[in-house]
Simulated assay, not measured.
Amino acid sequence: MEKTALALACLLGMSGIAQAEFVYRTPAGMKVQASSDAGSDSGSEPELNLVGFSDVHCNTNDSCIAIKDGELWITGQNRYSELGTGNTNPVWGWTNTNMPASKIAMGNYHSMVISNGTLWVSGYNSNGQLGLGDYNQRYTFVDTGWQAKNISAGGWHSMLTLADDSLYMAGLGTNGRFGITTASKNPNFLDVGIKATQMAGSTYSSYAISNGNLFVAGTNTNGQLGLGDTDHRSAWVDTGLPASDVDGGQQFAAIISNGVVYTTGSGDYGRLGLGHSDQVTTWTSTGFAANDIDVGYSHILALDSSGEIHSVGLGSNGQLGLDSTSSKNTFQATGQMASKVRAGRHTSYALTSSGTSATGRNSFTQIDMSGATYKYEFTPVYTN
């Protein structure tokens, strides 16, 4: 398949207060004019629109991508052009790219988007995590040609499944995180020999749900594979645990097994939700019943049966949504309701049918254009 690029031109200025014109080229080749006006010469207040994202993902460097009405929205630092803008200038305020999008994922500095049925990628690529056969950084979204069903991004590797749930991976493979090889770098998507209905890449490890059970591979320095030791695994291991949801963070991970959250790995900041900050090397029940989880760099968000968000772990940026910067070692009720949760490194999102709310760091307008560096409680997300 011929590879084409999504060109996004004329980014917002560094001030974030200036008017800018955008010209986008979608994968279908349609040119769309859009404007962003965060202010006006008349001095009138800009109109604010409550955002209803269906999904949001943020990386470790304060860049975020989201889906609204089937199109990709972007904001943030954009250090390695993971936002696909054609350069590395920040994007100030949530901006519609007009690029069709059905699923999204972000690694440390790269982005993955399923657009019109195929996987598009942009950003950092020193480990081949874009799956394009080389190690060259991409500044605009490029079509990989892969017809992907689901996608997930680890810190330095990428994961996709095909229509039959066959799992493929690309990028950094040290310590066996592909489950088939210990090669340090893999710039092409490789069939890793397992079918997955859900998968998650953490910073250095991989997780997959196959036939209802949790499988793990890769780095295990802190016991994040939950196998009772700290030995790395270069082949997929069936843990024997039934799992309905899985996600990984920085040297720790969480699953939902039989309706309850289990965690393993580094317990820094109390992020395992076990009432302490000790390392754990086996999957251990938190006792918290949840319908949905999402794991950030050092915190976890979970939805209880009523739809209320509970949070645990590092709170220094307000990402726990508890009107505090304190860390917590057991799940705490936030009072925020949601249908889905998303946890970034410094920011947390609550997705509902009526709008999106967020809490945490806002230094690169990951939440809004209010000028506040931090939000300590879930706040409605608006665009100008």
Rank of each mutant, 00 (worst) to 15 (best):
M1Q: 10
A7S: 13
L11G: 14
G16K: 01
I17N: 14
A18E: 15
A18D: 14
F22Q: 09
G43Y: 01
E47W: 00
E47I: 14
V51R: 12
V51S: 12
D55Q: 09
D62Q: 13
S63E: 02
R79S: 15
E82R: 03
T88L: 02
N89Y: 05
P90D: 00
V91D: 00
W92L: 08
W94F: 04
M99S: 05
M112Q: 04
G117N: 04
G117W: 06
T118P: 02
W120F: 05
L130R: 04
R138P: 11
R138E: 15
D143S: 15
G154F: 02
G154A: 11
G171P: 12
T174K: 15
I180Y: 11
T181M: 09
A183G: 11
S184L: 10
K185M: 14
F189G: 12
T197Q: 13
Q198Y: 03
T203L: 14
S206D: 07
A208Q: 06
F215H: 15
A217V: 10
Q224V: 08
G228V: 01
G228S: 08
D229R: 01
R233Y: 06
R233H: 05
W236A: 07
V237M: 01
D247Q: 04
G249Q: 03
G249I: 00
G265L: 05
S266R: 06
S266C: 06
G267P: 06
L272I: 02
L274M: 05
G275I: 03
S277T: 15
Q279I: 11
T282Q: 14
D292Y: 12
L303K: 06
L303A: 05
S305R: 09
I309K: 07
S311C: 10
V312F: 08
V312D: 08
G313C: 11
G315M: 10
T325M: 10
K328Q: 15
T334G: 05
G335Q: 03
R345Y: 12
Y349C: 10
A350M: 03
L351V: 04
S363P: 00
T365F: 08
S370N: 03
Y374I: 12
Y374L: 15
F378K: 01
T379D: 11
